[in-house]
Write a protein that binds this DNA or RNA. Sequence first.
DNA 1: GTGAAAGCGCTAACAC
DNA 2: GTGTTAGCGCTTTCAC
Lengths: 345, 345
Amino acid sequence: MSASPIQPPARRTRRGSGAITLHDVAKLAGVAPITASRALRSPHQVSAEVLRKVGEAVARTGYVPNLLAGGLASTRSRLVAAVVPTISAPVFLDSVQSLTEALADRGYQLMLGQSGYTGGREDALLEAIIGRRPDGIVLTGVMHSSEGRRRLLACGIPVVETWDLTPTPIDMLVGFSHEEVGRAVASYLHAKGRRRLAMASGDDPRARRRAAAFVARALELGQSKPTTVFVPTPTSPQRGREAMAELLRRQPGLDGVFCSSDWLALGVVTEAQARGIGVPSRLAVLGFGGLEFASALEPALSTVQINGAAIGRRAAQFIADRAEGIEVEQRIVDIGFAVVERQSS
Amino acid sequence: MSASPIQPPARRTRRGSGAITLHDVAKLAGVAPITASRALRSPHQVSAEVLRKVGEAVARTGYVPNLLAGGLASTRSRLVAAVVPTISAPVFLDSVQSLTEALADRGYQLMLGQSGYTGGREDALLEAIIGRRPDGIVLTGVMHSSEGRRRLLACGIPVVETWDLTPTPIDMLVGFSHEEVGRAVASYLHAKGRRRLAMASGDDPRARRRAAAFVARALELGQSKPTTVFVPTPTSPQRGREAMAELLRRQPGLDGVFCSSDWLALGVVTEAQARGIGVPSRLAVLGFGGLEFASALEPALSTVQINGAAIGRRAAQFIADRAEGIEVEQRIVDIGFAVVERQSS
DNA sequence: GTGAAAGCGCTAACAC
DNA sequence: GTGTTAGCGCTTTCAC
């Protein structure tokens, strides 16, 4: 075979994924790509005839739109990032679940990141998130690092901080006051006649603030200073048993314990019962979170109920509204909490 | 001011996100965009001088690469999708957590989807996932719907099915046999001298298979047919209490209960104790999952331990290896389980 | 080691 | 209602 001396420039082949593209669908349907695009995204803008042909082509080819390409072109990724300290902390599960569902209903997909309570990897995580140009970012807790705040502010992505309250959120906020929680529980136990209080707390920042407010309120009420034991997070019933043992060592006559999580409280109750200390006869115990299991225990566990699902739904609404250009009138929402009295107190 | 009569064609303004782009960084560093790209992705391929200048430009501008654009161009999104029935089912949490972490270590981000136990939205979810062109998809359980299997097969994305075993996975698999679990527990309780067995089970498909195998094995061992009560998922201690009440109604003399989750088991134990039925003296109880809290209960809960973290890690390795062109030799991994005997049996 | 050109697959902007 | 054109921001391919 003789090649012709003058070659045309070799065609650069740059096959993509090899998948069906909108282009293929449009060709099959006999319309322009943009028309096919409109048929899929805003069906009411095209004629019934086009709709039918495009629908047929999609069905025949099994076309799935490339949302990466769509996101790049429209600068709307329809992705929302959520950051939780760790997914193993069950208090946040309701939030994440309702967030996922509420977002899915409005056409958004959730991207999940775990920051770890330490916040060490927070920077890398932030980079990975911002790099995906999500339409919104939902944070658990408020962002304290000024570097983090600056980056979030700079990238211009809507941000919802949750599970806490601050007068100076980065953008939007839905949460409640941890100080109020601590005070409310101390007041409650005081009102129930408990006079030797104690606190078993995970050592994360928000739990520490609840603990500090709990202690301060007890002092305010004329009580002696409650003993506080901190355990590593994530909290667990095992940690609760250990914490209770330690508390009894340091303050043998205690009659009321506020725990920073329902799991911790389960362990505290278990350890107390194992030692013959009656709950609530000799000891009142309160948890925090209001997880479902708390009410099924024996004795049923008193707790501070947080409506995690509402937090998730509200956050989803914030993000979706903002993305769709709907004015968000109130940027800070305090969803509150409730001290739920059950048998354990 | 007078405009010149002949206007140049109006420039189509199509400002993107307005964010700093690689182009900006390159200009600032005085190199071509592709050189800046290389400096960031494969630093060893460029000179030290270029590296320094680009690094400086990135620092000055706060540039964050647009991974959507990168993914589109390279057909590698560095996204991995995970599908769980519901995030509220704590058995899967360890898996999701370790999956997230193991993927993050290798530069991948997790996208989370909830299918619901019903599988109703599975189709829409699949579309949302495939549309993002993830580098891998991790499913909880095996995909049964033939439509789903076909779509996953067709899109060519690596798939890992988990928490189950089948000889015909779509692609890769890491799990264990639910039938073996059911049989093992029946054998175990029989060996402990229990003769009137029962089962409290969530009504999801895998739990049902454990239940069926449990019943079959009990019959095989010459026992009378164990009573089985099914409760709606997600399971909870409350459901466990209700299930126990129902079991006692239908089989008052039972002496061993296998529960399809540790939470259910907690409820079963609670209800038994509330009725004065000693555990384990009169009743042996086993859970399933091996959640951490099980060992801190009083009595400590016997359970079937599943190494969820190992499942997550292995799945992450499967996906990342495949994405990086590393040959995956063994596509099916049985990680097994362990019957852990504690006080409750 | 560095760069120019050509897309990845889609949609915004503008015409008709 | 439909089509044309020109990107979105990056990486691949090829050339030096």
